[in-house]
Design a protein around this nucleic acid. Structure first.
Lengths: 135, 135
DNA sequence: ATCGTTGCAAAGTCTTTGCACTTCA
DNA sequence: TGAAGTGCAAAGACTTTGCAACGAT
């Protein structure tokens, strides 16, 4: 039988509070604020369990560590910001995407990831170049 | 000045011949047929150089090792087959994809990866279940 | 002959595993 | 209490780096 430990509770807590998916290390750092002596192996073990039991969803950003978010948010994708390194949720999808797969293939799901500057970082970039240009 | 070594030539050769992107280990195995004593470190070093010089493009399949394909093939995506583990090229894209990114974000590029059974494996699956049903 | 490159082995990073101890039920 | 869970350290997979020897120019 599965037990409800302080560690597991802390990890669940941390993931639920966050808007964007977290890496195992980010989860460790956050959860250690709740359970000081928490170890990284415990985080990995619990991520696997919470994944299996369907509480978490794995978000794989090509070229970066896996991240974890609360499951059941509906189909959506992510935006990875090069400037701040954060991942943002992009709501929705477009049905046209599925027309790309040729006949004969059986598509089960897809992952779509955008890369660039998030709104906040884009503003900074604009200010910097804007100031340089006007003054 | 950069040199034209047997090793580098072999790696370039291997990538050019392949239709789908290869992992570093696959490249090592193939290239060792051309240069027997080739080492994995040399493969990694050359992948980096060929990437920098623009000969290669890195294909990142979320949840799998990075793969490398010849650059300059135009915008396209990939299909990862769960059954055989191979990666297939999916031609083209849909402009609607870009409408998903909210105003304020600056999108530089995107990656779209499909998962499921490739045409060959889908056939096998169909045969198996077909036979089971009719006989 | 020079100096970029190589092969090997050692070092890193990230993740998983083994094990004695702890703790929830 | 007793089995699931934990922390720590050791082991694994994959990738990078240090270094002496090699070989393209």
């Amino acid at each position: 039988m599965q037990r409800d430990t302080r560690q597991r509770r802390a990890i669940r807590e941390v993931v639920m509070v966050q808007a964007s998916p977290l890496t195992p290390l980010e989860i460790l750092t956050e959860a250690q604020k709740l359970v000081a002596r928490l170890g990284l192996a415990t985080v990995y073990r619990n991520l696997r369990m919470l994944l299996d039991e369907g509480f978490l969803r794995e978000v794989l950003i090509p070229g970066d560590s896996p991240r974890y978010e609360q499951a059941g948010k509906g189909h959506h994708h992510h935006f990875f910001c090069f400037r701040c390194g954060k991942v943002f949720e992009i709501a929705g999808c477009r049905p046209e995407v599925n027309t790309l797969v040729p006949a004969g293939y059986i598509q089960e799901f897809h992952e779509l990831t955008f890369y660039g500057s998030c709104a906040g970082c884009a503003l900074e970039v604009a200010e910097e170049s804007g100031n340089a240009g006007t003054r």
